[in-house]
């Protein structure tokens, strides 16, 4: 971790939480930062373990990544084909999440 520096509040929280912890394998779940995890291959609603722990949360933080990359085209409007203007009504979903639109294909 000596080459990695926390640059925002969340990262600092993670750093504080694991301050002093030795590099060891477990508990794995505590080590995984919130957000999409390729290791767990989370689904939109349920993670690979059948629960919600491995999901992106808050989902608003990652929402526009899904939107622009068509990651969950069935659950999130996709920018590529169907809803190019979806993000116009909400520039920063984490702060202004209540103005996020529901779309009706």
């Amino acid at each position: 971790m000596k080459h990695v520096r926390a640059i925002n509040q969340k990262a600092r929280l993670i750093e504080e939480r694991f301050a002093g912890a030795e590099d060891s394998v477990g508990p794995l779940a505590e080590r995984i930062p919130f957000g999409c995890s390729t290791q767990l291959a989370p689904g939109w609603e349920v993670d690979s373990g059948g629960g919600t722990y491995g999901l992106c949360t808050p989902i608003e933080r990652d929402l526009y990544d899904c939107y622009h990359s068509c990651y969950w085209p069935a659950q999130v409007p996709d920018a590529l084909t169907n809803f190019a203007d979806w993000s116009r009504s909400c520039g920063a979903p984490v702060q202004d999440w209540s103005s996020i639109d529901l779309v009706f294909p």
Partner: peptide, 12 residues
């Protein structure tokens, strides 16, 4: 399980 919503309403 209490999980996230879906942002596309396919069924109106």
């Amino acid at each position: 399980l209490v999980t996230v919503p879906i942002y596309v309403q396919w069924d109106q």
